[in-house]
Amino acid sequence: MKNSTTTGNFGLRKALVAGLAGLIVGLGGIYIYQTQVATGSAANACQSSMAAAEQLKPFATGEVAAFLPAQKPLVVSDLTFNTQDGAPLSMADINGTKLMNIWATWCAPCRKEMPHLDRLQAEMGGDDFNVIAVNVDRNDTDDKQIAFLEEIGVSHLAYYSDNSMKVFNDLRAKARAMGLPTTIMVGQDGCEIGSMYGPADWASPEALELVNRAMAAQE
């Protein structure tokens, strides 16, 4: 014959296990629900950029063959940096399609790439499109970086910086930065259209075609 105390303890343990399992399932349901809500919100906000990304796949060729069109909606309008006079600025403050490039003076591929970005800005920069080249040198002042741009003949790009490297780390947290240079195309809705890791000739015919197609896809 079973001891009544033992039976009671067994029943209590069984009830506790069942309750804990129910709690885990409930928390899992809350997590899944919240994830679905967040994903759904981004999808709604990024419809224009995602449509552009889908259309750009055949145009990632030649000099921009390494361009990766976005596979999932990603809002990047919260990325922040500073203007040349030190005023804070975010991607949300800039209209049109943007090509954000993260660079540094000590980055040899960046030195090669910057003149191409400068020519892209000279040819296409305006109300609907701009190259946003953000320097991430960890200097107290921007004198060295500005002198660097003058030395290599860059004159059409506005100077932006983030000496704390927060913009790079924010992109890395979004799995969009593995090194320098890193380039991300951002749509009018503030979402990623696509990214590239490493340098490219952004003034090449393939790059110009890619940018033009991205802009047309959002109209």
Rank of each mutant, 00 (worst) to 15 (best):
S77M: 02
G96A: 07
Y31M: 10
A104C: 11
L99F: 02
L56W: 10
F67A: 07
A38W: 07
F67C: 04
L74R: 05
Y33P: 00
I24C: 13
G19H: 03
G19V: 12
E63L: 03
G40N: 06
K72A: 04
G28C: 06
D93F: 07
E63I: 11
G19N: 01
M50F: 01
G86F: 05
I94D: 07
F81H: 14
A70M: 08
N101P: 00
L27Y: 10
A87C: 04
T80P: 07
T39C: 02
I24V: 15
D85I: 09
G40A: 10
I102A: 06
Q36A: 03
A52W: 11
A53V: 10
Y31C: 01
T39W: 05
T35M: 08
A52S: 14
L23P: 02
A51G: 10
L99E: 14
A52G: 04
S49A: 14
A18V: 15
V75Q: 04
Q84Y: 09
L79G: 00
M100A: 01
T105Q: 11
L27G: 09
A92M: 05
G62N: 10
A42T: 05
A66V: 00
G96Q: 03
V37I: 06
S77W: 02
L23E: 02
Y33L: 02
A60K: 02
G22C: 14
E54L: 11
F81Y: 13
T83S: 08
K57F: 02
N95Q: 14
I24D: 00
L56V: 07
D85P: 06
N101T: 04
S49P: 02
S77E: 07
A45H: 04
A65V: 05
L23F: 13
L99T: 10
P88I: 06
P88S: 14
A51P: 00
L74D: 07
T83A: 12
L68D: 11
V37M: 08
W103Y: 10
P73W: 09
V25N: 01
V25P: 01
I102C: 11
D85T: 15
V76Y: 02
S49F: 04
T97K: 00
G62E: 09
Y33C: 01
